[in-house]
């Protein structure tokens, strides 16, 4: 009997492994191996096309910590996240609540706000560049009409990053709104009616008593995905400012791109990417940790 059990267990183990293998292989090929190569490269002085490459230990990381360009780009990226995160989450929540209250026009608004998500950001960045152009752009034409001076949104050092953040918010808004709408639809109508009978009359009371707490899991998820997306900012910078003016919009991935593909410092770029991945890993860890705890009602 026990021999039979043992055989059964062995068969099950092999079948299980058989089922896992394809996914495992794919995961190795697309994620684990590239990651290992990246990690390996980050400890070398490899340059694209170079013949002799040798290990430099942690020199690349030491260099990054001391590199003013890297430090600035990390700071800029975090500042960008700090603007985009509350903007894209708060606004999306507000719009979702407003759109959720509509009956017939709901579909219309959903489409309108979702359009930026479906468009290519590179193409849209060009459009934004035109819109914000100091002399040709309609935004400045409007400002002039109101009697203001024209604003060089993308060439003023202290304005470039916030402007990019506005574009980032615009791009993320629709997606976050749809997530919030899904969250709102999942809240039972009975709860609002019960709350009304119990004396939750004002919109603010309803929001604080029902909507906000029950939307918490959605909000956490939206916040984490927004942070990750914002942290990965690259295309708008590449198209609209190229890190300028005076490095005021240099961000992490743009820096990696410059080091790797413009200056061919592959080893250094790999080290920067590893640092970047550590941040992303942190966001993901927060996500799984917090979400696991908050979603169990």
């Amino acid at each position: 009997m026990s021999a039979f059990r043992l055989r059964q267990a062995r068969i099950e183990r092999w079948t299980g492994l058989g089922f896992v293998t394809p996914a495992m292989l794919l995961f190795m090929l697309t994620s684990l191996i590239p990651l290992a190569v990246l990690l390996g490269l980050s400890f070398t002085n490899y340059e694209l096309g170079a013949v002799d490459t040798k290990s430099v230990g942690t020199a690349n990381f030491a260099k990054a910590v001391a590199d003013p360009v890297f430090r600035r780009s990390l700071g800029n990226t975090l500042l960008y996240v700090a603007i985009v995160l509350p903007g894209a989450v708060g606004l999306a929540l507000l719009i979702a609540i407003l759109v959720h209250g509509r009956r017939r026009s709901r579909g219309f608004y959903e489409v309108i706000y979702f359009l930026p998500v479906t468009s290519t950001l590179i193409a849209m960045a060009t459009v934004w560049q035109f819109l914000l152009h100091p002399r040709l752009g309609p935004v400045n034409a409007f400002l002039r009409l109101l009697g203001f001076d024209e604003v060089a949104f993308l060439s003023e050092p202290h304005l470039a990053l916030p402007t990019l953040a506005v574009v980032g918010i615009w791009q993320l808004l629709g997606f976050n709104m749809v997530l919030f709408l899904a969250g709102l639809s999942a809240i039972s109508k009975d709860l609002y009616e019960a709350a009304e009978v119990d004396g939750c009359v004002s919109g603010l009371d309803r929001f604080l008593t029902i909507t906000w707490p029950l939307l918490m899991p959605t909000t956490m998820f939206v916040m984490v995905t927004t942070s990750i997306t914002a942290f990965k900012i690259f295309d708008t910078v590449a198209v609209m400012t190229r890190g300028g003016p005076m490095g005021s919009s240099e961000v992490l991935l743009y820096n990696v791109y410059l080091e790797g593909f413009q200056y061919f410092h592959m080893g250094y770029a790999a080290a920067l990417t590893v640092i970047f991945l550590v941040f992303i890993l942190m966001f993901s860890a927060i996500q799984s940790f917090v979400l696991e705890r908050r979603t169990h009602y």
């Binding site: 009975d190 009616e193 019960a194 709350a195 009978v197 119990d198 008593t209 029902i210 029950l214």
Partner: peptide
């Protein structure tokens, strides 16, 4: 008036105490 719903409509994120106390706190 007080209403008891078929689905009970208890607030899932609140303790039983908070559920019962809500009409009074309001």
């Amino acid at each position: 008036v007080a209403m008891v719903f078929q689905s009970y409509a208890l607030y899932p994120h609140m303790s039983v105490f908070a559920n019962m106390a809500l009409p009074l706190t309001m």
